Simulated assay, not measured.
Amino acid sequence: MPRAGLTADRIVAAAAELADEAGFDHLSMSALARHFGVKDASLYSHVRGLGDLRTRLALHAGGELTDRIAAAVAGRTGRDALAAFAGAYRAYALRHPGRYAATQIRIDQSLIAGTPALRRTADVTYGMLRAYGLAEPDLTDAVRLLRSTFHGYCALESAGGFGAARDVRASWDKAVEALHVTLTHWPREAEEAGER
C-alpha cells in the first residue's frame, strides 16, 4: 500500500534536490527513502526503480530547462535570441548540476514525444534557428553544434577546467558571438549540393 503523502511527483522533486546536492550519479533509492524517512520498498509503489526514477528526473529537468529557455528567448530573434538561449542554458547547468546531468541521459523517444514540455524544446530551438534562414538538414546540424558547444563549455566550467586568467564569462560571450557568426554564414546543404 502506498505511504500517505508520497507521490511520484514528490519523489521526483526530492530526487532533483538530492541530485543537485550529491550529484546525479550518486542518486539512489536508499538516499531518497532516508530523505522521506521511509523504507526503500515504500518508494516502489510510485516509481519502478532507479532507472524509472532517473528517466522521470530527466523529463522533469528537461521541462524546467526548456521553460527557462523559452522565457528567455520570448520576443527575441537572431543574435539576441541566441544570447538569451545560451545564457538560460548556462545558468541552469551551473545552478542545477544534478538536474542538468539528468538531461544528458538517453531516454526513449516515445517518452519525449509524450511530454509537452520537451516537445517545446524542439519548437523553441528550431524556431530560434529558423531566424537564421536554416532548413533541414542544416537545422539538425546547427542544433548539434549548439548543444555540443553549450554542453562542453558548461561541463568544463563546472569542473573547474578553465584555468587561464581570462574571465570565463567573457570567453562564453565570445563563444556565443562566434556561434552567431557561424549561424549567419552557415554553409547550407542545398547550396553545397548545387556546387557539385
Rank of each mutant, 00 (worst) to 15 (best):
G78E: 12
R120S: 07
I107R: 00
Y132R: 02
G87E: 05
A122I: 10
A74D: 15
E136S: 13
G87T: 07
A131P: 03
A84R: 02
R106Q: 15
G78F: 11
A81Y: 02
L129D: 04
L111P: 02
H96V: 00
A102F: 11
L129S: 12
D141I: 13
A93F: 05
A84N: 07
R99H: 06
L111I: 03
V143R: 13
A122P: 00
L94N: 01
F85L: 11
V143S: 13
G78D: 08
M128N: 06
D138K: 13
E136Y: 12
P97R: 01
Q109G: 08
G87I: 04
T121M: 09
I105M: 14
A131D: 14
T140D: 08
D108L: 09
L82D: 11
Y100D: 01
I105W: 00
I112L: 15
A102I: 00
L145S: 10
A71F: 00
G87M: 05
A84Q: 11
A131H: 15
D141R: 13
R79P: 01
R95E: 14
Q109S: 13
A71V: 15
R130Q: 15
H96Y: 11
G75H: 07
G87K: 04
L94G: 07
P97T: 01
I105C: 01
T103P: 02
R130D: 05
G98N: 08
D123I: 12
A71L: 04
A88R: 00
T77Q: 14
L134V: 08
T121K: 08
R119Q: 12
V124S: 06
A135I: 10
R106K: 12
D123P: 05
D138W: 14
A102C: 04
R106H: 06
R99I: 00
Y100W: 15
A88T: 00
L94A: 05
I105E: 03
D80Q: 14
G133I: 15
V73G: 04
L129P: 11
S110F: 09
T115N: 15
R68C: 05
T77I: 03
R95V: 03
I105L: 14
R95K: 14
P137M: 11
A117G: 02
V73L: 04
A71R: 15
A81Q: 07
Y92G: 04
A142G: 07
T103S: 06
R99P: 01
A131Y: 13
A122T: 12
T121C: 05
A72E: 12
A135N: 02
V73I: 10
R76V: 03
Y89V: 03
A84W: 07
T103Q: 10
L139Q: 09
H96D: 02
